[in-house]
Design a protein around this nucleic acid. Structure first.
Lengths: 209, 209
DNA sequence: GGCTGGAGTTGACAGTGTCAACATCTACCG
DNA sequence: CGGTAGATGTTGACACTGTCAACTCCAGCC
């Protein structure tokens, strides 16, 4: 039902895929807000209405690009090393999260940083998003509970803490705001490691309440 | 040189201020991306070029609104209670940060969440932004250093940690992403308190390295 | 053959930001 | 008092955008 329209098996010259690729290229160079279907058409040498054969609207095209970013994000998170126990696993998840954000700042910003096309109108995009959040929450739910049953509320609190810490660092790292403050690359590298360590402390802190 | 054009002393009917107010109202109802100077003009009953007498471009108007949000943010941070020592002060700062983000999600998003008009072209807006960051960094620099001189790098790391944690929670709280996950208001309240506590743990953790 | 439906094109419309030329009104200076 | 300069606001244009509607084309199928 979903996806698979592209590389499944060569299905036509696929102007559809060309649009997605060209749109992404435009966003990379000029930013989301200056993405225009007409410019995409122009670059592809087709008429300004051609993309409408494949996308109901500009926002639908954008939503598909964002969905792609989520898909890649989820894949990256799932591809993390799966060696240690629950605690080590969460750490790997955090590392993977930060790695992706550092390696793909544009995609990260597309997912979390920019005003998305109305999410309610693009359920497919949201499905991928929820999948990503679910991964993180699951990893936390797996944490060993030192005091018997892990209650749901505590899990939510922990998830929110981990999520917001990771997200905070990532969005700062992939934002322009950094330019106003002078921080070198080494520092950011260190900050990533440090943040992971501190998340661990923070989680343990909640137990020793 | 800067500011003071508004409420200093009644300086004309001040279409300028009316534009800012109306623009903010539009953003509140429709979102940033659908803010248009022409709509502002229409609502104010003036011609579509009138605002250009007061703002060189749409982005300049937007930048001024964002600058206003930063100004209010800085004022809110500076108005925090100043009772305790450095440690208590940082805690108050954190509380004030989260309070503002909760009370003014729109403004918070305007500052950190949306693609701003090219910051380099709006130095005034950036001046206010830096002021806000500076407050936080200063509060951290004041922390008692248990091991003699507080080195600059450590301060930066700490600042980045505190900042990103606060920002992460705030931006999640003021974002639509929350809607995809079911979290009640009580939980958010608890998360704010919990996060402040955990930031404390995180900072101490860096010392006991 | 004829017909149907997808893919792409052309032409229009309303909306936008912005430049340029015009009008008007206000204040100040001779 | 008259006149002139500057700020303020208006009208008209231009290029650009997303999107609707009607048109052409061409492959495949009965």
């Amino acid at each position: 039902m979903a996806g698979g329209r592209s590389s499944g098996r060569a299905e036509r010259p696929s102007l559809r895929d060309a649009c997605l690729a060209e749109a992404l290229a435009i966003i990379e160079r000029e930013g989301v807000e200056s993405l225009s279907l007409r410019e995409v058409s122009r670059r592809l040498g087709v008429s300004h209405q051609a993309p409408y054969r494949h996308f109901p609207s500009r926002d639908h095209l954008l939503a598909e690009i964002v969905a792609g970013a989520y898909r890649a994000f989820v894949a990256h998170l799932e591809a993390r090393p799966r060696t240690g126990g629950a605690q080590g696993d969460l750490r790997e998840m955090g590392r993977a999260y930060l790695t992706y954000a550092r390696a793909h700042p544009l995609q990260y910003r597309l997912m979390f940083g920019t005003p998305l096309p109305n999410p309610a109108e693009h359920p497919d995009m949201m499905r991928h998003a929820e999948r990503a959040f679910g991964l993180l929450r699951d990893a936390i739910a797996e944490l060993p509970s030192t005091e018997g049953a892990r209650d749901l509320r505590a899990t939510h609190l922990d998830a929110l803490f981990v999520w917001s810490t990771l997200h905070g660092l990532s969005s700062i790292m992939s934002s322009d705001a950094l330019d106003t403050v002078d921080l070198d690359d080494d520092l950011l590298e260190a900050a990533a490691a440090e943040t992971l360590r501190r998340i661990g402390f923070g989680l343990r802190a909640s137990k020793s309440d």
